[in-house]
Design a protein around this nucleic acid. Sequence first.
DNA 1: GCGCCGGCATGACAAGTGTCACGCGCGAGT
DNA 2: ACTCGCGCGTGACACTTGTCATGCCGGCGC
Lengths: 203, 203
Amino acid sequence: MSAIRVLIAEDQAMILGALAALLAGEPDLAVCARAVNGRAALCALAAERPDVLVTDIEMPEMTGLTLAAEARARFPATQVVILTTFARPGYLRRALEAGARGYLLKDRPAAELAEAVRRVHRGERVIDPELAAEAWASDPDPLTERERQILWRAGEGRSSAEIAAEVHLSEGTVRNYLSEAISKLGAANRIEAARIARQKGWL
Amino acid sequence: MSAIRVLIAEDQAMILGALAALLAGEPDLAVCARAVNGRAALCALAAERPDVLVTDIEMPEMTGLTLAAEARARFPATQVVILTTFARPGYLRRALEAGARGYLLKDRPAAELAEAVRRVHRGERVIDPELAAEAWASDPDPLTERERQILWRAGEGRSSAEIAAEVHLSEGTVRNYLSEAISKLGAANRIEAARIARQKGWL
DNA sequence: GCGCCGGCATGACAAGTGTCACGCGCGAGT
DNA sequence: ACTCGCGCGTGACACTTGTCATGCCGGCGC
């Protein structure tokens, strides 16, 4: 029985090295290549044809999501696991549409990475359970386009009057939209509302 | 010759595990404990008295910078290495003021971490060279400790009254500090002030 | 001792913010 | 034609925020 061959793509070199060291500790896994951006990862995919690709999302040159789609199209034998900081349902959805078989968060225990690689290689899907629940349960974005537009500006520190001028509304209306957004998000003020919306990926 | 004992603090569990695996590959280093936030790290410091503390900056409970200061004050035998994503001169300055002996970026090669630990343990300083150059050119942090403390909370969306209760000051005083911070940063309000300070690495 | 400065506080005022009730016009559904 | 919802606006009110002048007190230099 030969080891599962893994390619890791991650833009922070030290994290890349650390993840490689982590997987190197598993006897049934072998890190056959590393890449610090999406383009390098594609080259490595072509050269090595690994069993599993583990990739970050936010990388220069090419994001992990487009990399996943490319990998799916050109090297269907390679299964893709997304490994990211961001628990955003929007990212998960796009990852699955791109053909990724796994979606794992960087704040999960280290042991889950190796396990996810094994399970994906067996043909299973591995989705972070909390995120999966959240993705289906959470009502997708209670904000209207106007509210988003205005709340975003408020989060940057602009005053109601400035926002009103920017979006061509009256100041009172801007305050109404903000009030509405604040109550929808259960916040105490515009700042907290912006924080919550950002965190949920609605801004 | 016994191994250098290292404590790692990092809020993303998988990265924490990966870094530990990375250092575990070095025969002269031993990871004696791990912590996923500043408070846990302090406990581990007291219990283990490691030779070197490697810590992230942005963590829940207590940031790596305050952790570094605490470590310096209470466990001076432990040398501190900051390991972070952020190449912000303000962070570097505060890290050094807090008594850190090393400041390393996560996008440096993985091998530098072990090397930095060794050098810091020998009493040397290890500062990311690019960042060190930039740090001298940039303007210094204008904020006092109080202003930072209060502005940070304001940036989270808390009201003056809430902040006053948290830091045991009167509400008027909190407003005075915020006003001072706003004018120092050339901002129009607390939100913009927090944004500017964050971007410069002063929060 | 004295003056001086920094941290903290108070009070007052103007401006900005959050909420609510209400009104207008417009397109869609019946 | 009538109502309904929706996007937008107004005005009023209470509250929060930003600013400033002023003052207290403890530590420091001299």
